[in-house]
Computed example of a mutant assay.
Amino acid sequence: MIARWCRWIVSLLFISVLLMGCKAEPPLGSAERPIVMGFVPSVETGQLLETTTALTKLLEEETGYQIEPYIPTDYAAVVEGLGAEKVDVAQLSAVAYVLAHDKYEAQTILVTIRKGKTDYRGQIIVRADSDIHSLDDLKGKSFAFVDPTSASGHIYPKALLIQEGYDPDTFFGQTVFAGGHDRVIVAVMDGTVDAGAIYDGARDLPAIREIYPNLMEDTRVIAETKPIPLDTIVVRKNLPPEIVQKIKDAFLAVAATDEGAVILADPYGIDGYLPSQDSDYDPVREAAMALGMDLEEWVKE
Rank of each mutant, 00 (worst) to 15 (best):
R4E: 11
W5G: 06
C6M: 13
L12M: 13
L12R: 12
S16R: 14
L19K: 04
M20A: 13
E25P: 01
P27Q: 06
S30V: 01
E32F: 08
P34K: 01
P34N: 06
I35D: 00
V36I: 08
P41V: 02
T45K: 15
L48P: 10
K57E: 07
E61A: 15
E61S: 15
E62I: 12
E62G: 11
Y65I: 04
E68M: 08
P69T: 04
Y70T: 01
I71N: 07
D74K: 11
Y75L: 09
E80Q: 09
D88C: 07
A94P: 01
L99A: 03
E105V: 08
Q107S: 10
T108Y: 01
L110D: 10
L110Q: 13
T112F: 08
R114F: 12
T118N: 13
Q123E: 05
A128R: 14
H133G: 14
S134L: 14
S134H: 10
S134Y: 08
S134R: 14
L135F: 08
L135N: 00
L138P: 00
G140T: 01
S142P: 09
S142F: 09
F143V: 03
F145M: 07
P148M: 05
T149F: 15
L161V: 04
G165A: 09
P168Q: 02
T170P: 04
F171V: 00
F172N: 01
Q174A: 11
V184M: 10
V186D: 15
A197H: 05
I198V: 15
Y199S: 04
G201A: 08
A202L: 04
L205V: 15
P213M: 05
L215M: 02
M216S: 15
V221M: 04
V221K: 03
A223W: 01
T225A: 11
T225C: 06
L230Y: 08
D231Q: 08
R236Q: 09
K237N: 06
P240C: 07
A250L: 09
A250Y: 12
A250R: 05
V262K: 15
D266V: 14
G269D: 10
D271I: 12
Q277N: 06
D280E: 13
D280Q: 12
A288I: 02
A290C: 02
E296M: 10
E297F: 11
